[in-house]
C-alpha cells in the first residue's frame, strides 16, 4: 500500500506500483485539472508538484511517491489566486486552455526557485511545456508579471 498526500489530504493506493501518478490523480481521485498530452515527458501537460518540485506525473510511477506531498493545479491556491494564476488571467494567456494547468504548475515551481527569473531562466524552465495553440509570448509576459518584474500588458 502506498500512502501519500494530495493537495494536503491523505490518500492511499493499492495496485500496480508502475502506474503513473497522473492516472491516480485523474482516474482514482477524479482531479482532472492535470492533463495527458504525450505520456512520455515531452509536453508538460501533466505537470504537478511533488514535494514542491515540478514533475511530469505521466512518468512518475506510484511506487516513487510513497510518503510524498503532491500538489495539483486544484491545490495550488485556495481561490485560484496564486500570483501565477492571477497573472495568467490578467494577460489572458489561455486559448484552448488544455496545456495551461501544466504551464501554471511549471511557472509556479520556477518562481519558487527563482523569484525574479531572467528571460533565459524562463526559456529554460518553460520550454518543456508545449502549447499547441501557441500562447508562448503571453506565457513569457505572465511569468514576468507574476514575478513582479512587469506591471501591465504591452500592446
Amino acid at each position: 500500500m502506498i500512502q501519500l498526500k494530495v493537495n494536503g489530504a491523505a490518500k492511499q493506493y493499492e495496485g500496480d506500483g508502475e502506474m503513473p501518478l497522473l492516472w491516480f490523480i485523474r482516474d482514482h481521485l477524479q482531479l482532472t485539472g492535470s492533463k495527458f498530452g504525450c505520456g512520455m515527458g515531452l509536453c508538460g501537460a501533466c505537470t504537478v508538484h511533488v514535494n514542491g518540485e515540478a514533475v511530469r506525473s505521466c512518468l512518475t510511477p506510484m511506487s516513487a511517491v510513497g510518503g510524498k506531498e503532491v500538489t495539483t493545479i486544484e491545490g495550488l491556491s485556495a481561490h485560484g489566486d496564486h500570483p501565477v494564476q492571477k497573472a495568467w488571467e490578467h494577460v489572458q494567456v489561455p486559448q484552448c486552455g488544455y496545456c495551461q494547468s501544466g504551464q501554471i504548475m511549471q511557472a509556479a515551481a520556477l518562481l519558487k526557485q527563482k523569484p525574479k527569473p531572467t528571460d533565459r531562466d524562463i526559456e529554460a524552465a518553460m520550454s518543456g511545456n508545449i502549447c499547441r495553440c501557441g500562447t508562448y509570448q503571453r506565457i513569457r509576459e505572465a511569468v514576468k508579471i507574476a514575478s513582479g518584474q512587469k506591471r501591465t500588458v504591452t500592446a
Binding site: T32, G33, E74, G80, Q85, W88, Q92
Partner: peptide, 18 residues
C-alpha cells in the same frame, strides 16, 4: 475575456478527456 478563463487557470475547465 473568455468565459472559461478562470476555469482554465484553475484546472476546473472540463474537456472531452475529462
Amino acid at each position: 475575456p473568455s468565459y472559461d478563463l478562470k476555469d482554465m487557470c484553475t484546472g476546473r475547465a472540463v474537456y472531452g478527456f475529462d
